[in-house]
């Protein structure tokens, strides 16, 4: 590839045929270029009188915002788009790994450029460290087809593959309705909400939109005293209760038995996860031997209480265990 100085105003940034990155922050790069200049020239190519970026979108955009008149570029002289795209891919791989969205974009471009699904599975999937199956390719292509607002959340929340995959199972309208509830939550809670909602919908044969339009959810959404995070948390809890009604009743019973016993806040007691084992965990902290003894005495009092067996059973009365 030959190297050329290219005027920035002749680069056609509207033609995005080789572009794979959309969500990035230019601030650090602008500062670095301003201080030490452009170390790594982008790759461009000529197509019908236009100069197109093959790789280095961030670099070109950063130089534009610094109003540089021209920058050094490598010029790919071939006319085969697929060859150019693959070159860009290789060039990127030499100095960085791709994000989930970039991988999705790469795979989608390859298919658009006419590479067969089987060739992508055999070739680029392993290059991108994705399991080499058609099923994985399908899911990445679905992620690439998501709406820009959803992709922006995937990027800003650094969502993992399983969460993004769950999003692809919703319709565009459903995703739009879910946006405000998803945004404030952390990844695990997003995943839990998405999964539980989908499963309640399938179990009860009720469309997601109808569940979200339900009175209980709408009441949370319109509550003026709740912050976006509180609303999202309440919706998540509500959906979880719908998904696991018996387990939720058991948890509630445990909580109310604890209250009934006046169990102190500074001694934690937990049943085994999902009440699956018969063990309970008690946890407390202490500063000195006096405090330690006091807590043990309190615990002994609690264990001798006649209501303790109810707490340790926690079974709601209507249940037949």
């Amino acid at each position: 590839m030959k190297s050329e100085n290219i005027k920035l105003d002749i680069i056609n940034i509207k033609d995005e045929r080789f572009r794979i990155s959309y969500y990035f922050d230019l601030f650090a790069l602008i500062r670095s270029i301003a201080e030490i200049g452009l170390i790594h020239p982008p790759v461009v190519t000529h197509r019908k009188g236009n100069v197109l970026i093959v790789t280095g979108w961030k670099r070109v955009l950063a130089c534009q915002s610094l109003s540089l008149p021209s920058i050094p570029c490598f010029v790919f002289e071939g006319q085969d788009d697929l060859e150019a795209f693959r070159l860009g891919l290789q060039e990127n791989l030499t100095f960085r790994t791709f994000t989930l969205l970039e991988k999705a974009e790469i795979l989608s471009r390859l298919i658009q450029l006419g590479v067969t699904e089987n060739d992508v599975v055999k070739g680029e999937l392993s290059l991108l460290e994705i399991p080499q199956t058609l099923n994985h390719l399908d899911i990445y292509l679905d992620i690439a087809a998501l709406e820009p607002e959803i992709k922006a959340i995937i990027h800003s929340k650094n969502m993992t593959y399983p969460v993004a995959q769950l999003l692809t199972e919703y319709s565009e309208e459903e995703r739009r309705l879910l946006l405000s509830s998803l945004h404030p939550l952390g990844q695990n809670k997003q995943k839990e909400l998405l999964q539980n909602l989908l499963e309640v919908s399938k179990r009860d044969h009720i469309p997601v939109q109808d569940i979200l339009a339900g009175e209980d959810i709408q009441r949370i959404i319109s509550a003026e005293n709740l912050s976006p995070l509180q609303k999202a948390e309440e919706i998540r809890n509500l959906i979880q209760r719908k998904r696991y009604p018996t387990l939720s009743t058991w948890k509630d019973t445990f909580k109310s038995q604890k209250k009934d016993l006046e169990w102190p806040d500074d001694i934690k007691i937990e049943p085994s996860p999902f009440f699956e084992g018969e063990e309970y965990t008690v946890q407390f902290t202490f500063k000195n031997s006096d405090e330690y003894k006091k807590k043990l005495i309190k615990l002994n009092e609690l264990v001798s209480h006649k209501k303790i067996s109810r707490l340790l059973k926690s079974s709601p009365k209507k249940n037949n265990e």
Partner: peptide, 17 residues
Amino acid sequence: YEELIRGKDGKFRYFKP
């Protein structure tokens, strides 16, 4: 879509009750 939880072995199984 029934109430499947993670058991002691990490596998999904129905809530014990």
